[in-house]
Design a binder for these strands. Structure first.
Lengths: 226, 226, 226, 226
DNA sequence: CATGAATGAGATTTCATTCAT
DNA sequence: AATGAATGAAATCTCATTCAT
């Protein structure tokens, strides 16, 4: 297992390695991320790596765990001030997309993890589902969400988030060119997000939306998309 | 570029290589899928591989393209006899899940492709989106689907499909043990699929479903899930 | 051993292979000259090669032998009309340089032959020495060349020829750029050749050198070497 | 580029690799000199090779450069105590032949270099020519050598040296049998060397050649060559 | 704590040669 | 006579990991 440092200096070294690993994994992928690259990025000696991590897979697992905790934290935080359920979801998605933009490692790493560390991957998804289920259950109790298996809803929401992040954050960033100084997108375009949220709102809405009950909203038939 | 065989024998050999590659990629992932493993699986000599493919990446791209064509074909076929729009979606999902069960390579390969062959990955998703958009646009014209950007809906549907496939097909198969002779699941459990389809139905439904229009549905509050 | 063809068609095929081999050996060197390259250059099937040659080394030996015979022929022919001994040498050198320019393979192949086919290499040099020795002996009998071991003179002349060919033909050709349409040099520059021939003339000239410094030496007409 | 070691141990390892490479190149030639053979000869691990050299060609270039420096040093040293010009040449040749006998790699490697590393080959010959030109120019100024283009003389001398080295050192060594314990020749036989030196002496001698035979020619002291 | 030299298993790729058609 | 599909030994090179300093 990974070793904890005993001195302040060691703590710093270990943290540097983790940061470097996230960076290298993000840009090179797991297999092309050699230990040498990571230690060089961290500015420390090759051998030092093995003082803190048992191997490549282990630091990978820890990076996955870190990212998972951080993305969940970001989503929860963002949702705290939301008034309605749908606002919670929108805020959560936005936080997720922003995190994706700032930490492309999350995506790239998670999707690679299939073969590298299936357990870590599974843990990642299940952690997020657990968060969602909690929130959705509470919302159901409060009558904000219609009765349905919250886990199904959770997987559905997560699936949408994952692909929209890929499509509207990662791909757009790539399309702008790797070295171009143009600003990378940190958000899914508003009109796209509006459409997506409306889809989700209807899917989760508690009452069979009675005719005319919500006369004005959702009628945005003229919306324009990228 | 990949080379086409000039004789019947060559055609057979090339096809065997593709089949073997799909199998090996599925079980070992891209990086651990060595050419040796592929040729051994195919039962042909190592050097023969290079008569038909320039390298690993090239056969990978071709496998991705094949799988993509086949899964789209399977989904389209399945949806042909569906009466209503939601039936189309359900049939499509089912076909997709079944394909996933029978060709775990699809999943594993596509998700790995991020670093291996981003273009191939992108092509895969965009091909599917294109299919979806066609169907959804037609359904909108027919009044079966409410007005919304069909591309947004397409990505949403695909995202859900992807994660449910992972969760309920691949993971379940793994949980049953790799070598166990137990029957692998070829379907997402009915109650889960019902919930998912209801979510989608509401999300896409054209009119704000008038109160009581579908009086009995949505009441399945007792559903149980894995 | 190499197989002789039995039909006219076969004769043509074999000749094509030899010509192609010379070309490919010249431009790629022995090791990078694959049988495929040779057969492609010759415009015949790969397997056909082995109908006429037992292997790569064998066709190499034959190409060396061919080139050797041809260069000797060219040198002898050129010298036939020369009046004086030094004119014979000059004509011989010129013929050699011209042959080098037209058949860079000679050089490249011979020098590679060290490891590929030492016997063929040795045969090449010994053949040329034999020609030289014949001519020099006759010239000595005619009093045109001072008494000295003709074999030593032969090796000396050949050594000079080889390096001047390299320096003033091959290197100049390279310096003009591989793809440039500029005319490749076919001769060593006149002033250089003049200097070289004067050096040789003095070295071989029958008249005793001025100062009686070393009056008796050089008369060792009986020397024998392995 | 080749990497310099940072520790004493590394320095030793790198030197061992170079020595082993020289040996292996000499006995097997460039193409059959695999990295494995070199590292085995050096008694170090295969991977270690790549810590110090980027590949086979790179260590080859360095070996060529080393040998070149050493042979030039040996020739210069040997000539230091020589009294007359012709003694300088004789001493130089002897040193060259001895070096050839002790380092057959020089020969074999240089002649192979045609395709492997033309630049290294060219550098080798040009370095030696440069040395020769210096010495000959000085001798011309001192009236020991007749006026002639020193570069032409340099190439002529080098050409003779090369072929005599091949003929009387390398071939003789081979003829004695590769593994036989018989003493390898380290010198060209005296009587051969005498003949050769007399040839050269006459070619370079300042005194005018025999009576009026070709009175004016050869004096072109102004000739310039590319 | 920190370092980087050393290692060798394993991956990709080439190509001379054989052989069935 | 001619062909080209098939083969596998062998070569180059990478990199996770160990260990002496």
């Amino acid at each position: 297992m990974s070793t904890q440092p005993r001195t302040a200096r060691g703590t710093r070294t270990r943290a540097r390695l983790l940061a470097a690993a996230e960076k290298v994994f993000a840009s090179a992928g797991y297999h092309d991320a050699s230990i040498v690259k990571i230690t060089e990025e961290a500015g420390i000696g090759l051998g030092t790596f093995y003082l803190y991590f048992a191997g490549k897979q282990e630091i990978f697992d820890e990076v996955v765990g870190d990212l998972n905790a951080r993305v969940r934290h970001a989503m929860t935080e963002a949702a705290r001030t939301a008034a309605t359920r749908i606002d919670v979801e929108r805020a959560g998605f936005q936080a997720f997309f922003r995190f994706t933009a700032e930490h492309p490692a999350l995506y790239r790493i998670i999707r690679q993890a299939e073969f590298v560390s299936p357990a870590a991957q599974r843990r990642h998804y299940e952690n997020i589902v657990r968060s969602y289920v909690q929130g959705l259950s509470a919302a159901q109790d409060a009558g904000e969400v219609r009765p349905m298996d919250p886990e199904v809803a959770a997987w559905a929401l997560m699936g949408m988030g994952e692909l929209f992040g890929m499509r509207y954050i990662l791909w757009e960033a790539e399309d702008l060119g790797g070295d171009a100084a143009s600003p990378k997108p940190t958000d899914v375009p508003d009109e796209v997000l509006d459409e997506l949220m409306e889809f989700i709102r209807r899917g989760l809405a508690p009452a069979p939306p009675a005719a005319g009950s919500r006369p004005v909203e959702g009628q945005r038939e003229d919306s324009k998309h990228a």
